[in-house]
Nucleic acid binder design. Sequence first.
DNA 1: CTTTGCAGG
DNA 2: CCTGTAAAG
Lengths: 269, 269
Amino acid sequence: MSIRLVSWNVNGLRAVSAKPEWRWFAENTCDVIGLQETKAMPEQLRPEVASPAGWEAHWASSVVKKGYSGVAVFSRIKPLAVHCELPQPEWQGEGRILHLEFEKFHFFNGYFPNGGAEELDENGKPIPGRFKRVPYKMGFFDAFTAYAEECRKSKPVVVCGDFNIAHRAIDLARPRQNEKNTGFLPEERAFLDRFTALGYVDTFRHVHGDVEGRYSWWSYKMRAREKNVGWRIDYFFVSEELKPYIRDAWIEDDVYGSDHCPVGLELDI
Amino acid sequence: MSIRLVSWNVNGLRAVSAKPEWRWFAENTCDVIGLQETKAMPEQLRPEVASPAGWEAHWASSVVKKGYSGVAVFSRIKPLAVHCELPQPEWQGEGRILHLEFEKFHFFNGYFPNGGAEELDENGKPIPGRFKRVPYKMGFFDAFTAYAEECRKSKPVVVCGDFNIAHRAIDLARPRQNEKNTGFLPEERAFLDRFTALGYVDTFRHVHGDVEGRYSWWSYKMRAREKNVGWRIDYFFVSEELKPYIRDAWIEDDVYGSDHCPVGLELDI
DNA sequence: CTTTGCAGG
DNA sequence: CCTGTAAAG
């Protein structure tokens, strides 16, 4: 027995679900699908997208700004409980977290904040290395980690989604050029150091070791994807109690339709 | 000897000039082309669009809002003088009028104001028949007429462009349904009554009489164009001194690429 | 570069 | 419905 889970930042579910690439969903044989950046309320989608037969669908949508952020989880397994967003109002409203409690583990689907644009000084010139939303991003990660740790007291944890951080130099094509760009800032990388030190295992690295050139996001600019100038910022982490049960972890970089590709995890269970 | 002039509301010159339909321009054998709703500054266009070889180009662009309104005139004949906008500052800034003085006549290319959306009452409900910009539209027409009459003292006048008014019931497919819609309001139609009473001749009607079903604009909604549910709101008027010289006037309703089609005039001269 | 939102027509 | 804009990624 095994359970297969996949995660995909779709960059607009209305757009993706109108493309031929959306057959990815119909052809998918996994048990749980976490989507990020849905940028839509379910009622804005065709019924077969919002409520596909054979799946239970859950949504967390942005209420602070429409067409922004948003996550969804489709599951063939009925969860014991479902929670939208983090517990504190401070971190609610952008539709970033769905928490499904399954029999054997807590499952989190997260669209973690982007660091945003560089801050501008009084003269309107960008301040190198200072990004508008990095403080919010770091606070969000801390709040998430505290909640995950709390949940982990009852059973193991699986976290997937777009972390908007490449952990190590090996996780992006151009590490040196990006040391002062959000997504690879020292303080962002340090969060993933702390997170993994708590016992959250990067399942792709666990399975594939230090393989190079495997990414999950490519800028739409400069034909980055055809040159594989990418970043690995989409992850499946499991709390280390589940490490013995990791059967496989992968990156579906043959799937197009978004600037991200799906990533997956299979657990023996 | 004759001179041929055409007028086209392109609904975005950047968009049209990227479509195959823009071959209309390259294949055009006329002497003067007036465009409306260019929605662009010439420097935003490819050089062969902004400054086509063999033509003199003139532009009046909106300075109050970018990507809005805007007119252009391409001429194979060098004008004696060129004036942008109406003389009074009150009616300037939206890029609506180009006035080229030729040897035998004053030529005006106009994008006359749209009546806008219905005004809302205190409860946010639309007030039937009350449109936000109809007062501005009527003021603009009066200012234009005064200017044209002033110019007409020195030589005859040719006026083309999008008037955003259907003159008579015969000039739109659904007159009854539109009696309370801007474009066919009594006060708008009354302006064209006054304008023609001053001696400005609707050249299409002069040539074709009361022919029905010939329109120059179709809503993009409801497949109006394939059903020919249109309006004739694009005109060539000439002051009656030129009436003996009208050789032809036409509507190029086989030209696609905009919600309007071109209209044309040939004068013996 | 791409997806959203929105104004304007 | 289509063209522009802007914000966000």
